[in-house]
Design a protein around this nucleic acid. Structure first.
Lengths: 124, 124
DNA sequence: CCGTATCCGATAGGATACTG
DNA sequence: CAGTATCCTATCGGATACGG
């Protein structure tokens, strides 16, 4: 079987999928997961690694991940303060599904860009 | 290996992933893919199957998918007009990656909801 | 039946500046 | 260094109505 919403049971799959996208479908969250997949990182390190993300949005993305239990936040009460973020077990379990999607993207990027160009050309 | 952005090569993965989410990360697109995964459907049928989507947003979602070559649109010049949408080969190839994500969501939904509740409780 | 246009509110997201 | 608050803009998305 390879359908997502053929029957009642798979309708549930769509809901689950929608919830996942609600969590990681924003502009920066998956980037954060990607950066943290290589190990614990400090705020500033993440910030530089991603590049282009505003201070504010990175904070929000990290809060969201922490709230959902995908990321652990550890504060070292030093001066200046040091805060480390790391993926939790469940956070790490998200990497493979995301990799699957990324692979699909790399495989089909060219075809999609071409289709898009053709579509836009027809639209004059 | 199980990292997303450890080195330069995998940074590319993140870009690909970001592009995929740009395409399917909106509120309704994956629902449409889900509905169409069971075969060609007319506009109104899709509209009813999803439920809750506005006429306008469904049109936009379908346009986007058509533009990217994930969906074929066929117009039957009858009166009243009949328009059928179906996944293309590349569109169907997206189903499995999405299923992987959906499965992750179903598996971890409970844990995430709990973590969220705990986080919100602490925040008073 | 299908598509588009218009209007409107809600939210995402950037820039900046201020605290500890 | 890390987090928060404020302001402002652009985009998302719903409701409605009209055209083919």
């Amino acid at each position: 079987m390879s359908t997502l919403a053929a029957d009642e049971e798979t309708r549930d799959e769509c809901q689950a999928l929608a919830q996942v996208l609600d969590r990681v479908g924003d502009k920066w969250t998956v980037m954060v997961v990607g950066v943290l997949s290589s190990g614990p990182q400090r705020f500033t390190t993440i910030h530089r690694s991603i590049g282009g993300v505003s201070h504010r949005m990175l904070t929000l993305a990290l809060r969201g991940l922490e709230r959902d239990g995908l990321v652990n936040r550890t504060v070292f009460p030093t001066i200046p303060p040091k805060v480390e973020y790391e993926l939790t077990e469940i956070g790490r379990s998200l990497i493979d599904p995301l990799m699957t999607l990324a692979t699909w993207g790399r495989t089909n990027r060219r075809a999609i860009d071409d289709a898009r160009a053709r579509f836009d050309a027809k639209a004059d």
